[in-house]
Design a protein around this nucleic acid. Structure first.
Lengths: 104, 104
DNA sequence: ATATCATATGTTATTTTAGTCATATATGGA
DNA sequence: TCCATATATGACTAAAATAACATATGATAT
């Protein structure tokens, strides 16, 4: 299925970036506005905004305006089971491999 | 969790590529050797080998030698539920978005 | 109306990733 | 042993993704 491959690439592309993943991780707890995300991660504001836009565009996070703030929430329905699945995978297949990566 | 972010990036990085996804898709049916994968996909042999190596390194596929052939199988335990999860996500959040992508 | 704070957008330079080409290794058969 | 087939590896280039910078927009308060 050609369509399917493009679909998956769209999905994974959004998540194959450490900064976006870290943002997701921060949002796993509670909704946060951009400034809060910057503060917690130490990332620069424009970079965070760019990445939030990508994540929102892919349905990974949702946005809600509140005065001059914008609050972002993670899409728990997708992200939670997804990360759990990955945890299980990594535990079983990749633990040593990742160690190797780090040394590079 | 710093470790977790690197872990997830490792995972998604392997899958954020259309050719690798297509190879996975081909392997979803049955185990196949490199030549067969090339034939089915129309991809060049060295490219397929490179990508299979990446997939194997990430625990997404397994390899089994048989004479001068090497048979690859997809890691169904991870891949199957993963793709199902993504199907559900895309259906709910991304159907129009993907259409937009195609026009670019 | 303007100043300030919060966030977004456009552009560019840099880094990362991927594919290709040339070549190497491994296996089995004559 | 030598050849053919199957697959892997290394190096190089091209293309895509990313972060950083400059700037714009939107909102609130004064």
């Amino acid at each position: 299925m050609e369509h399917t491959v493009e679909t998956y690439k769209f999905f994974f592309g959004a998540l194959a970036n450490p900064n976006r993943l870290q943002i997701i991780n921060v949002l796993r707890g509670n909704k946060k506005n951009v400034g809060e995300i910057c503060q917690i991660t130490g990332f620069e504001q424009t970079m965070v905004s760019h990445n939030l836009k990508t994540l929102e565009h892919h349905g990974m996070v949702f946005m809600e305006k509140k005065g001059k703030f914008r609050y972002y929430t993670v899409n728990k329905k997708t992200i939670k089971p997804l990360l759990e699945l990955i945890d299980a995978h990594m535990k079983e297949y990749c633990c040593k491999l990742l160690e190797g990566e780090k040394r590079k």
